[in-house]
Write a protein that binds this DNA or RNA. Structure first.
Length: 412
DNA sequence: TCTGGGGTCCTAGGACCC
DNA sequence: TCTGGGGTCCTAGGACCC
């Protein structure tokens, strides 16, 4: 039987902010933005949670429920930095570590009894070490599978440890509400409720075939989980296997909805540049570009276009995204959100004819220079001409890659 | 109360090919 | 000119997670 740990940092963003400003300790703290902003709560301190504030809650609602809370903008760089520290601590306990997000990880501690003793004493050592190195609390779930360990760490919060011994998984899960299972959200919970299923144990009695027909592959996995079977389910991939990203995207919600073409096109260009930049950092070329549009009434559309060759170049992606935008925006309708993304990654752009290959090489060189300048002077210093406010679209054709040395120039 | 931003995975229909 | 069947790619939407 494998021994799988799920380590989950307690109120991670809030706890990191407390390290930088200890006066926040014990207070109602909300990370995510100002109380008057469009946006949602990223993390809430346990004190704020007492007032019904939780992640994904609109900030304005949080402010109504907990007017005395301290609202903070997030610091993604800090969270990344501390995520690395957490990762380093976990690696002291096992080489098989998989960060599932910035603030949680799976560890394979199978066969480490001689090193760390029982799973419980290993967990306590991990706890102490985590606190000593990072100053942060975490909760630890232990079982023979990733899914059960994840449920365990949640039950152990805050700052606790829970170990479910092999063979007792189904018994542990049975009394829990189905919503506690990762993958069961609002919708699935409601659909299950409609057929009288509230707790995980209720699932165990159902025919697998029925669950499959009604709930697809999910139903099948769920039935297995409810009976305590873990092996081979979608959830239990190998721990520590490195996976490349499958999509890259950026999106922006405006402070106020806008139908201003120059604002919209500027934003779309900026978003696409960020996407292209990350594509180059990964060494990927993307075949498909995606546009996301959200109108004032929150109706949301996505439109995709597959290119004839994979690309990582600003201007090629921008032209494609812009075209999607021009064909799909209901002209004049105010927009709440714009997004740009790419999928279908390849290692190279594929075969190009001689002329295109030459053009391509020039573009790559120019962009490498642009990337360097952006590193030194910041993202906004160099941009496609049309990425600058007030500029017209025609400039794209004059200066497709924003060559450094020509307009626009970086200012120091 | 008015709903972020970054992802993953699944479903389903249509095109197109054999 | 009644109506196949599988495989793959593309697109759109949606559930879900942190």
């Amino acid at each position: 039987m494998p021994t799988i740990f799920h380590v989950d940092m307690d109120a991670f963003f809030v706890s990191v902010e407390e390290l930088f400003d200890p006066s926040l300790k014990g207070k109602a703290v909300v990370v995510g933005g100002r109380a008057t902003e469009r946006g949602v709560v990223s993390a809430a301190s346990y004190e704020a949670r007492k007032f019904g504030v939780h992640s994904a809650l609109p900030l304005r609602t949080a402010a109504l429920r907990c007017p005395h809370a301290i609202f903070l903008d997030g610091h993604p760089e800090r969270y990344r930095e501390y995520s690395h520290k957490v990762h380093a601590v976990l690696q002291e306990f096992s080489p098989k570590v998989e960060m599932a997000s910035v603030d949680e990880a799976y560890l394979d501690l199978s066969g480490t009894a001689r090193l760390f003793g029982s799973p419980l004493s290993a967990a306590h050592a991990l706890h102490a070490r985590m606190k000593a190195v990072t100053g942060l609390n975490c909760s630890v779930g232990i079982s023979s599978s990733k899914l059960v360990s994840k449920v365990c760490s949640d039950q152990a919060k805050p700052n606790g440890v829970l170990w479910i011994q092999p063979g007792l998984e189904a018994e542990f899960l049975a009394p829990l509400e189905v919503r506690k299972l990762p993958g069961v959200g609002k919708v699935m919970e409601q659909r299950l409720r409609e057929i009288g299923i509230k707790r995980v144990g209720d699932l165990a009695g159902l025919e697998e075939d029925f669950l499959r027909r009604r709930f697809g592959v999910w139903g099948l996995a769920l039935a297995g989980k409810a009976r305590g079977m873990d092996a081979g389910s979608w959830f239990d991939g190998e721990i520590g296997a490195h996976e490349d990203p499958k999509s890259i995207s950026h999106e922006h919600t405006f402070d106020q909805d806008t139908a201003d073409v120059s604002v919209l096109e500027t934003t779309l260009t900026r978003l696409t540049e960020k996407v292209a930049r990350r594509l180059r950092e990964h060494g990927f070329h993307a075949r498909t570009v995606h546009l996301k549009l959200r109108y004032s009434d929150f109706t949301t559309f996505t439109r995709a276009h597959t290119l004839d060759h994979a690309s990582q170049l600003d201007h090629e992606l921008i032209i494609a995204i812009r075209e999607l935008f021009q064909h799909n925006w209901r002209r004049g309708a105010p927009i709440r959100l714009l997004g740009a993304g790419v999928t279908g990654f390849e290692e190279s752009e594929g075969q190009l004819d001689l002329l295109n290959a030459e053009r391509n090489e020039r573009a790559h060189k120019a962009l490498a220079a642009v990337d360097k300048i952006r590193d030194r002077f910041g993202e906004k210093m160099v941009s496609l001409a049309s990425g600058l406010k007030g500029d017209t679209r025609e400039k794209v054709h004059e200066n497709p890659v924003g060559l450094p040395g020509k307009e626009p120039k970086p200012k120091t």
